[in-house]
């Protein structure tokens, strides 16, 4: 039998697999560095010992503050803490000038999604790590990855292209929300999570 036939087939198979598994995932996302390298670890570690809610509080009105404004950083960072270039840049460019840092939010949900932290914290008593993973202990901010087509953050789909064998907190797609809601008997309809 002429081996050329199966070979050509295998070649096609291999190149498509290479494209689909290696090249495409790289093409799919655009990486953007965060404006400042921020270490959660320093802030939550023993020497400073802050909790998540000190910078990301949930207000009495049920509105989650999201990322802290520069006013939250100011009390400690009016003067440079430590000697890193990053810190110097942060103090000079943002704190002193009173400018907000244009952080890129990994967990930002699409415009048509309504997500409130309040029921998840106040009623379901979920720890932050349930959805955000060990982010609070990270020493580096990984690059923000934006989907070139949908412009969604990569964290919505999750780091794994197949969505197989993922950690509990990886992935924030509608199915992920629904699965947990279903497991806990939360009554759902479209407008529960959409706006």
């Amino acid at each position: 039998m002429n081996p050329r036939g199966p070979l050509t087939f295998a070649l096609g198979l291999a190149s498509a697999l290479a494209l689909g598994w290696v090249a495409y995932p790289r093409l799919q996302y655009r990486s953007v560095e965060q404006p400042i390298q921020f270490s959660h670890k320093i802030h939550t570690g023993e020497s400073v010992g802050m909790t998540c809610a000190e910078c990301h509080p949930l207000g009495d009105d049920g509105r989650f503050a999201g990322l802290p404004s520069i006013a939250t950083c100011e009390p400690c960072h009016t003067e440079t803490q430590g000697t890193t270039k990053n810190e110097k840049h942060f103090v000079e460019q943002y704190v002193t000038k009173g400018r907000e840092v244009p952080w890129l939010v990994y967990a930002r949900q699409p415009e048509n999604v309504y997500f409130a932290h309040a029921p998840h914290i106040g009623l379901a008593h979920l720890p932050c790590e349930r959805c955000h993973g060990p982010h609070g202990g990270s020493d580096q901010l990984r690059p923000y990855q934006e989907n070139r087509l949908s412009s969604y953050s990569r964290d919505i789909w999750g780091p794994s292209a197949t969505r197989l064998a993922r950690a509990e907190w990886e992935g924030m797609k509608m199915t992920d929300c629904s699965a947990c809601h279903e497991a806990h008997g939360v009554r759902e309809s479209c407008l529960t999570c959409h706006k």
Binding site: F9, A14, L17, L19, G20
Partner: peptide, 13 residues
């Protein structure tokens, strides 16, 4: 080649 590529693509995400 196209057949192989089609199957390969379907087996990729």
């Amino acid at each position: 080649f196209a057949g192989g590529a089609a199957i390969g693509a379907a087996l990729s995400p």
